[in-house]
């Protein structure tokens, strides 16, 4: 299990990486969203906000009405934010569960892919 601190640390590194990527910022144009993260094993909840092409700080607990809810284990969240896990693979195997529109799901995966693979 990953602690909340580990997830916060991983997220901070991921957010810096995303916000420093010019192409990714272009891809976020017009995509202002609230994303809730729910860790199945620890019960920790977080909120990610994307506003004006910038990925915001990680807020503790579920804040506001979400556009997207991501449910996974704490380990998967930490690995995902470090870029050590392919979220699509976990999603296609049913280990990461999502609620939200297909377009938002795509964008979220794109964030992860472009940040680490720059495709």
């Amino acid at each position: 299990m990953a602690s909340a601190e580990e997830i916060v640390e991983a997220y901070a590194a991921w957010r810096d990486r995303c916000n420093a990527n010019e192409r990714l910022r272009r891809m976020l144009r017009g995509w202002d969203r609230v994303v809730h993260l729910e860790a199945t094993d620890t019960g920790d909840r977080f909120t990610v906000t994307v506003h004006e092409q910038t990925v915001g700080e990680l807020a503790a607990d579920a804040v506001g009405a979400p556009d997207l809810v991501v449910t996974a284990t704490s380990e998967d969240f930490a690995d995902l934010f470090w870029g050590d896990l392919n979220p699509s693979e976990k999603y296609m195997s049913g280990e990461i569960v999502l609620a939200g529109s297909q377009e938002d799901v795509m964008r979220l995966d794109a964030l992860s892919m472009v940040a680490f693979l720059d495709q």
Binding site: V34, H36, E38, R45, A62, G64, A65, P66, D67, L68, V69, T71, G94, E95, V97, L98, A99, G100, S101
Partner: peptide
């Protein structure tokens, strides 16, 4: 492993 989309503990989706 999977669960219903709306069965998450969080708030209702903004766009559903």
């Amino acid at each position: 492993m999977t669960q219903p989309a709306a069965a998450h503990r969080g708030a209702t989706l903004r766009r559903a």
